[in-house]
């Protein structure tokens, strides 16, 4: 498994915000990173001990582990521009 982008999405149950975030993420990735990414969804309600590792406070949080640097994007990812900048797909304007 050596994809270029390793993404983790932290959620807490299937809330509206979580579902929206996941859908948004999938859509952006398909558009821009097709075949180069892997998304791991972690439900903190099931695995609360994982929250500490990535310093998760807000839900939903998208963590870009690879490539470096580690970035976090919180919220339902409704703003595509910001997400793409956050993932270093598009340079900050």
């Amino acid at each position: 498994m050596s994809k270029k982008y390793e993404l983790r999405l932290y959620v807490a149950g299937k809330t509206l915000k979580s579902v929206t975030a996941l859908n948004n993420l999938k859509q952006y990735c398909e558009e821009h990173l097709k075949g180069e990414y892997v998304i791991e969804v972690i439900d903190l309600l099931e695995q609360p001990q994982l929250a500490e590792g990535d310093q998760i406070l807000a839900i939903p949080t998208l963590v870009k582990k690879v490539p470096e640097p580690v970035r976090k994007i919180i919220g339902d990812l409704s703003n595509q521009e910001k997400v793409l900048v956050g993932l270093d797909i598009r340079p900050k304007l």
Partner: peptide, 10 residues
């Protein structure tokens, strides 16, 4: 980076 709605459930 913040985008859209979130809460501090984490």
């Amino acid at each position: 980076e913040e985008t859209g709605e979130y809460d501090l459930q984490g």
